[in-house]
């Protein structure tokens, strides 16, 4: 994949800017409300790459569902380019932890989904091939999902998102279930895709190293109900290297903030 060099200036035009205004959310359980997010305030510049890091079950994924428009926050507001988010929109696409490809469609058919929902399939069919080339799956266009490996399936899910020319790419632990080698490769690939297209990227992860390696800013959340405990700016050019001493220092800092300082 392309290993682009430094490009740290955020591209306001291509990427959606987000602002979270004291966002709180709770799940309705049988007879009580379980608060998951409490008063999250965050500004995300258009075209930037922000990682959200936190203990598992803290509500990180809920935050993404709110940004995707799949759910509405109980209180507070999330603005996309100044407009409140009312529902899902193809300019804000999600790649989930499971690829969730439709098993009855070929890879090509899965990637075509976003075009189909918007009635663009007839005129923009060429975009499917382009998206598949972007993730290196052009030879698997007519394969069915069950014929793909985990990494290939996740690449197909990425192509399904990218075919829509998103202004915001939402990644919900997209590499969480992949093996170490595929994971390391895809971390670089996603960064390269982002550097080329400059959409805003919001990624949830529970891997400290992954967050620091990929994102410009790492937002650390507290346990549930989650609120922001710390924001680390990773002012390092791309491509980054795992063994960079600055990265190691930041990792120690992040682990401390997560309450795991003794293991750092």
């Amino acid at each position: 994949m392309v290993a682009a060099t430094t490009a740290l200036e955020p591209d306001i035009d291509a990427g959606l800017s987000l602002s979270f205004r004291s966002v709180s959310h709770a799940f309705a359980l049988a007879d009580e409300l379980l608060p998951v997010l409490s008063g999250v305030d965050l500004e995300v510049q258009g075209g930037s790459f922000v990682a959200i890091l936190g203990p598992s079950g803290c509500g990180k994924s809920t935050l993404l569902r709110l940004v995707a428009g799949l759910e509405q926050p109980r209180s507070g507001q999330i603005l996309a380019d100044g407009e409140p988010i009312a529902g899902p929109h193809p300019s804000r696409v999600v790649v989930f932890q499971d690829p969730t490809l439709y098993p009855w469609r070929t890879v090509e058919g899965n990637v075509a989904l976003g075009l189909e929902t918007r009635g663009l399939l007839r005129h923009r069919r060429d975009r499917i091939g382009a998206a598949l080339r972007l993730v290196g799956l052009e030879r698997f266009a007519s394969a069915f999902p069950h014929q793909l490996s985990g990494g290939m399936a996740q690449r197909a899910a990425l192509a399904r998102a990218l075919v829509n020319d998103p202004r915001l790419l939402i990644l919900d632990e997209p590499l969480g279930k992949l093996d170490q080698l595929t994971r390391m490769t895809m971390q670089n690939e996603i960064v390269a895709l982002w550097l080329n297209a400059r959409f805003t990227t919001l990624m949830v992860t529970h891997d400290v190293e992954e967050a620091l390696l990929m994102a410009q800013r790492v937002v650390i959340m507290t346990p549930r109900p989650a609120t922001i405990s710390e924001i680390i700016d990773v002012e390092m050019p791309y491509p980054r290297h795992r063994n960079d001493p600055r990265l190691i220092a930041l990792r120690t800092l992040a682990l401390e903030r997560l309450g795991l300082g003794t293991y750092a």
Binding site: P88, V94, T100, W104, R105, T117
Partner: peptide
């Protein structure tokens, strides 16, 4: 039908009709 299939389609801009005929029905076949 796996509710994640609906989430995927909704984030890609699917309307109710699409969810029924292009997601629920093929998944239920």
């Amino acid at each position: 039908v796996n509710s994640a299939y609906y989430d995927v389609a909704r984030t890609l801009g699917a309307n109710q009709r699409f969810l029924v005929w292009k997601v629920a029905v093929p998944a239920a076949m």
